[in-house]
Design a protein around this nucleic acid. Structure first.
Length: 259
DNA sequence: ATGGTAGTAAAACTA
């Protein structure tokens, strides 16, 4: 039995956050780090500095937006993509390790309820549910992490009544995600912090002093199927990372497992 | 308060 810490971080550009990410890994916070919004095409991905720091990295992305990468201390046994969502944006990276399969996703944000991107978001969440069911069972050791762009409960946003109907806090996306959860996932952060309010992973750049006023959203998640969920020991949000000189608008979320 | 800021990439799109 070994302890394994898995973390997720929407970097909002891996190149802008590269040193912070390497420093965070060097500090020993996690064994595996799933990154979203790398915002870089593969030929420009900063692979060398990550490998020279002693880590392995799998990545897939394109210019400007989206893109995912998974950094790990040990090399993944296999790397694969997910399903075709009809766009050129890469939003899913599946890596297999000794004791688990890690699915790293950047769920579409949705832009606006009236926009076609919102329908795309709903469709995408339904598609990943189908993809899970086609490739795995809830008995498999599966960990689903990433920016899911969904706050699932009222305590997951700072002002639920003010945000109700927002694309990240909409009953339809909550229902779509709940269907996937019921297939076999446990929200690992909530397992260790049940009903604890004001625990946020995302703080809008455009809000005024969002950290000090704790104006945030819990839209980044670590979910796991029963065999892995039963092995989780703790989960935490690293708000110190928000104090970086040029922070991402998201912060690190981590969970430790005895596997 | 329909603004606000950040990143990419070189004007406008995404978040």
């Amino acid at each position: 039995m070994t302890q394994l810490t898995i973390a997720t971080f929407n970097a909002n550009s891996i190149r802008a956050r590269l040193q912070q990410i390497i420093d965070w890994m060097d500090a020993g916070h996690a064994d595996i780090l799933a990154i979203q919004e790398t915002k870089v095409q593969d030929k420009d991905f900063p692979r060398s500095p990550i490998e020279e720091a002693g880590y392995h990295v799998a990545f897939a992305g394109q210019k400007r937006s989206a893109g995912v990468a998974t950094i790990s201390k040990t090399p993944p046994l296999a790397v694969s993509a997910g399903f075709d969502d009809g766009t050129d944006r890469v939003r899913l990276l599946c890596t297999r390790f000794d004791s688990l399969v890690l699915v790293n996703t950047y769920v579409p944000q949705g832009r606006d309820v009236e926009h076609e991107q919102f329908a795309y978001k709903l469709r995408w969440i339904e598609q990943i549910g189908t993809w899970f069911a086609d490739h795995f069972t809830p008995e498999d050791p599966l960990v689903w992490v990433g920016d899911l762009n969904v706050a699932t409960e009222d305590i997951d946003v700072h002002n639920p009544n003010g945000h109700r109907g927002h694309v990240d806090f909409h009953p339809d996306v909550q229902a779509a995600l709940e269907t996937v959860r019921q297939w076999g996932f446990t929200d690992i952060f909530r397992k260790h912090h049940p009903a604890e309010p004001n625990q946020f992973t995302y703080f809008d750049y455009r809000a005024r002093n969002p950290i000090d006023r704790n104006i945030g959203w819990r839209i980044d998640h670590i979910w796991a199927t029963p065999p892995v969920a039963a092995a989780s020991q703790s989960a935490w949000i690293d708000l110190d990372a928000r104090r970086a000189e040029r922070p991402s608008d998201h912060t690190f979320l981590a969970a430790a497992f005895d596997l």
